[in-house]
């Protein structure tokens, strides 16, 4: 219980920082106002990075970028996977077989590699990272959605709705969606955690295109050359990523079987 409360607390604080970063941050994150690798001091709690930029300011904008990218990627997963799953369940027949087959093929490539394949196809960039991560995990969520929807189709009220001639769209929006929402929501946290992991990993690998964006994964990457002289530059993003992953996992209740 305490763990869950702490987790919510951390996420709310991060979300607040992400929303209010431009107003909270003491210095502009992209301007070199200080000495390179300046140590922490008054008004500069985390010191400056190798280009003399306020590192706390960069971390704050990083919260905004990381959470926004993750949120968008997770939204792509939920929308694409959800649409595919619901439609496969209710349309059935050859369409369902085709969707199943497609998701099996996509699942034959591990999620992160699939995302990297898409980044390769679209070229490195922030939009590519979002779409790639989103679509990379969509087959897995599609499967979860389909099996939940299939089990709902067996329910008496859904059969009754079908018997009185309700069309597929109406049954999906009126019965399947609301009744599967609690279950789907319990999985959503895990997909958010996976998306966060994949997004920070891809930006860490430099696949967001611009290596100077202050996303946490990219900050972690650029800190590696100053481990000895400025360990705080690595410690801060590492800690932020770790705590966020742990918080989301503490809240997320269910994990899909891969």
């Amino acid at each position: 219980m305490i763990a869950k409360r702490l987790a919510w607390g951390w996420l709310v604080v991060m979300l607040g920082i992400a929303l209010l970063a431009p107003w909270l941050s003491p210095n502009p994150p992209a301007q070199s106002l200080f000495d390179p690798l300046a140590p922490p001091g008054p008004g500069l709690p985390l010191g400056a990075d190798a280009l003399g930029r306020d590192f706390l300011a960069r971390m704050m904008v990083g919260a905004r970028l990381s959470l926004l990218l993750t949120g968008l990627a997770a939204a792509v997963t939920l929308i694409v996977g959800g649409l595919a799953g619901f439609s496969a369940a209710i349309v059935g027949g050859r369409y369902e077989v085709a969707i199943n087959w497609l998701s099996n093929v996509l699942l034959a490539i591990p999620g992160l590699l699939l995302a990297m394949l898409f980044v390769a196809a679209w070229g490195p960039g922030i939009a590519a990272v979002i779409l790639a991560v989103g679509i990379g995990f969509a087959p897995s969520f599609g499967r979860v959605t389909r099996s939940i929807a299939k089990s709902l189709l067996e329910e008496g009220y859904v059969m009754a709705a079908q018997a009185i001639g309700g069309d597929r769209l109406w049954i999906t929006s009126r019965h399947l969606l609301p009744n599967s929402l609690p279950q789907l929501a319990s999985y959503a946290g895990t997909y958010f955690a996976w998306a966060f992991l994949a997004v920070t990993t891809l930006t860490f690998l430099g696949l967001a295109g611009d290596p100077s964006i202050p996303e946490w994964g990219a900050l972690l990457d650029s800190s590696r050359s100053h481990l000895q002289s400025a360990p705080r530059l690595a410690a801060a993003p590492a800690l932020a990523i770790t705590l966020t992953v742990l918080a989301v996992h503490a809240i997320a209740s269910k994990e899909p079987v891969p």
């Binding site: 972690l220 481990l227 690595a234 410690a235 992953v245 996992h249």
Partner: peptide
């Protein structure tokens, strides 16, 4: 639980950090 949930990038950099602090030189 930590093993499955933490990204390898993070654990990797943390381990490098620890080792480089212990060894007191760039690893």
């Amino acid at each position: 639980g930590l093993a499955t949930s933490l990204p390898v990038a993070t654990t990797g950099v943390i381990s490098l950090l620890i080792v480089s602090l212990l060894a007191r030189r760039q690893v």
